[in-house]
Simulated scan of single mutants.
Amino acid sequence: MVKMGTVWDRTIEVLNGRTGMIAPIAVLSILVPSVIRDGYVAFSTPGTMSFALIGSVLAIGTLVAMLWAQLAIVAIASDPGTDAAAARRQAGARVLPALGITALITLIAALLAVPPVIVLVQSGFDFSAAANGSSVQMTPPTAGAAGFTALYGIAYLLLAIWIGARLVLLNPVILNERRGIGAIRRSVQLTKGLTWRIIGVLILFAIVMLVSTWAAQSVTGIIFRLALGADGIATATFLSGIAATIVTTAFTALAAVFTAQLYVAVREKSVTP
């Protein structure tokens, strides 16, 4: 039986011994692209064609860099014999399949979110007014539409958590087994019998990450606003966002190491007679 406590212990061992290789990858490929993207959004003029185009390019570039970094960290954490150079090569070879699978999953998630939107539109709900905050002009949805949307939203969230738990080994499978779309089925197979334990870990991880990120952003936000004054609110917000991004970068790297060690543990169990 795979024990989550053992997986966490192995994760800490990897971090203690290989942080020197993991940290540069996380900083250069997760933190820096995210800061550049957020900086552009914070200090550019929205609503223009160039803003949308450059913003989209930066968003896609940040996603690709993040996927590459996660794969490289998984490579480092999966095999103690893998050095940083080998990890970068392995990640470079598998980043496009990972990007394609991520795009497919995102598309499916978006399609599954369409039904309540259709129901709300048919009920006369004005999304434009809601987006602009014009509550006076908004036509409230009917009771039936509101009820359906609420129930669908709860079901959607529960399904997303369950699927997230079953696909938690997606990147390790993509990297170590060099699978394409078949990595989805393989991850589901490997996590059989572990779903509830993985869900528990994911929920705990999400709570700790959200609280830590909020705390970092709130504290630094207050400090920067006091230091920069009323005229520097935009800069203060951006700088506090960097603090939050530093925290999320650390948790992203931690998650990659954990999933790699979980994959190793499950793989060892599957080959044990």
Rank of each mutant, 00 (worst) to 15 (best):
K3I: 09
V7W: 02
D9L: 11
R10F: 09
I12E: 07
E13L: 07
L15C: 11
T19Y: 11
G20M: 04
P24T: 08
I30Y: 00
V32I: 14
P33C: 14
S34Q: 14
I36D: 02
V41T: 08
F43M: 05
S44V: 10
G47S: 11
T48Q: 03
T48C: 01
S50Y: 05
L58S: 06
L58G: 02
A59T: 11
G61H: 06
M66T: 10
W68L: 11
L71R: 09
L71A: 09
A75K: 14
I76N: 08
G81K: 15
T82S: 13
R88V: 13
A91D: 02
G92R: 08
V95T: 01
L96H: 08
A103N: 00
I105T: 01
T106F: 06
I108R: 03
L112K: 05
L112W: 08
V114G: 07
V114T: 04
I118R: 04
V119I: 10
Q122K: 12
S123G: 10
F125C: 01
D126I: 11
F127R: 12
G133P: 04
G133N: 11
G133T: 05
V136C: 13
V136L: 15
V136P: 15
T139E: 11
P140V: 00
P140N: 08
A143R: 09
A143D: 06
A146W: 00
A146H: 05
G147C: 15
F148H: 01
T149Y: 03
T149K: 02
L151M: 13
A155H: 11
L157F: 13
L158E: 12
L158R: 02
G164R: 05
A165P: 00
R166K: 09
L167H: 00
L167N: 02
V168E: 06
L170G: 01
L170S: 03
P172S: 13
P172E: 06
V173M: 06
E177W: 07
R179G: 09
R179K: 11
G182T: 05
I184G: 00
I184N: 00
R186S: 03
Q189G: 05
Q189D: 04
Q189A: 12
L190P: 03
T191F: 00
T191R: 00
T191E: 07
L194Q: 06
R197P: 00
I198N: 02
I198A: 07
F205G: 07
I207Y: 06
V208T: 05
M209T: 11
L210S: 12
V211R: 04
T213Y: 13
G221A: 12
G221W: 05
A227M: 02
G229L: 07
T235R: 15
F238W: 10
F238Q: 13
I242L: 06
A243N: 13
A243Q: 10
T245F: 07
V247L: 04
T248A: 09
T249V: 03
T249D: 01
A255M: 08
A256F: 08
V257L: 05
F258N: 04
A260D: 13
Y263W: 14
V271K: 13
